[in-house]
Amino acid sequence: MTAAIEIENLNYRYPDAKRPALHDVSLTIAQGEWVAIIGHNGSGKSTLAKNINGLLAPESGRVTVAGMPLNEANVWKIREKVGIVFQNPDNQFVGATVQDDVAFGLENRAVPRPEMLTRVHDALVQVNMLEFATREPARLSGGQKQRVAIAGIIAQRPDIIILDEATSMLDPAGRSEVLALIEQLQARSAMTVVSITHDVDEAASADRVVLLNDGEIVEQGTPAALFTHGEELLSLGLDVPYPERLKAALRRRGAKMPDGYLDQEGLVKYLWTLHSTM
């Protein structure tokens, strides 16, 4: 598999900061892979994202995106490959209508009008927002706003989409809307997804979870492997998955619980087995 993003020994320090925000980070993300980056506030997650598309320039180390080394000559080409969805849906709208907003990035790239119309249409179909094309973005719900923001990005046909806490300001319905959309995009168009998140469900959807702490990668693996940390997860910036919480509570009461990670269904089955053999 080819690498979508290759990061080698990346170091980054904010101006006047005593400690580096990223310290010797190396990470390879394969094309079509979904990687969740987790860590508590201030652990360096967003700084890492901004180093991937050249919004920040590293102190040292190398970043390669879609085979191109990130440097001044390539940065604009790389930004065409990488779209970022930010946390606050209200901070990223420029168009007066949903379709104008989706077209904005294409206008900036001087995409010919007939092609622009098709791309805007297709993008709105993909995020299931076509019927809102002529509405004002301000009047949409949070989940709808983020879907429009995602449409603006997929209209530009990037290879990589970075979600920087893109679901953290949404209500539970909006959160599952956006999550379902990302799952679809990854499955259908083999998009590489990097999601920076505190949300357990979002992390659980990823192929791989990377844990950052104080600017360093301290652990990576499948969501299930990471979730076995149980109640420790809270200090790592994630909520504890509910089955782990219940297992811990039962264990404290003297019940025997399996060590490996169980999802809801797995735990219900396990408990049912105990119940039926009583």
Binding site: L246, A249, L250, R253, G254, L271, L274, H275
Partner: peptide, 27 residues
């Protein structure tokens, strides 16, 4: 799945308390 709860548990602790006797109690 056949478990019984009364009253409806609202916290993890309440659920664990009611579950324990239904899964054979402490090991």
């Amino acid at each position: 799945q056949g478990f019984r709860f009364d009253p409806l548990p609202l916290t993890t602790a309440q659920l664990a308390d009611q579950l324990l006797p239904q899964i054979g109690g402490p090991a």
